[in-house]
């Protein structure tokens, strides 16, 4: 696998931290109006969603590396967001956990032979997935949500100036 993709995966936590810099608790918990076209979740919900999704996906990747074509069962991200008190979890802790989990798993990814990235799992909704697909999927997942964080920031007049 392209080492740049692994580096991008590794730096996801830093990107996420940067994306919420300077936001207040109220900003994090702000739910956009449905017609604002900036997504329906609060920034806090996005952060906790990314924490939960990354822990699940790194778990799946570990199984794909260690086991032979393991069965992988989908989960309901909307039910997670609705039933796991996303508003009451700690957003800073979520980013820290996300960041360390990626840094730790990056050590594993960097030790793997190229052939390992063609290993597969059987997802009950997506079908066959390879390790080589999972890593960019995780990179893209963060980028996708950061785009919506930026749109929300712009809407609340708190855009990141770059």
């Amino acid at each position: 696998m392209n080492p740049e993709t692994i580096t991008q995966f590794e730096s996801g936590g830093a990107l996420l931290r940067q994306s919420i810099a300077g936001l207040s608790k109220n900003d994090l918990l702000w739910i956009p109006p449905a017609d604002a076209n900036v997504g329906l979740w609060s920034i806090q919900q996005i952060l906790i969603h990314l924490q939960d999704a990354d822990i699940i996906w790194t778990g799946r990747m570990k199984r794909i590396i260690a086991e032979d074509n393991p069965p992988i069962i989908g989960y309901d991200e909307s039910k997670f967001a609705a039933n796991l008190f996303y508003d009451k979890q700690d957003p800073d802790r979520a980013i820290q956990l996300f960041d360390l989990n990626r840094k730790q798993f990056t050590k594993v990814l960097r030790k793997l032979h190229d052939a390992t990235f063609t290993r597969t799992g059987q997802h009950n909704e997506r079908g066959t997935i390879t390790l080589a697909q999972c890593v960019p999927l995780m990179v893209g997942h963060v980028a996708h949500h950061i785009e919506f964080i930026q749109r929300k920031r712009a809407k609340m007049g708190n855009a990141i100036k770059s």
């Binding site: 199984r63 393991p70 069965p71 069962i73 989960y75 309901d76 039933n83």
Partner: peptide, 14 residues
């Protein structure tokens, strides 16, 4: 989290 959020979900081993 699956158990809290979903209805009696199937859980894979490892």
């Amino acid at each position: 989290k699956n158990v809290i959020a979903e209805e009696n979900p199937p859980i894979a081993g490892f």
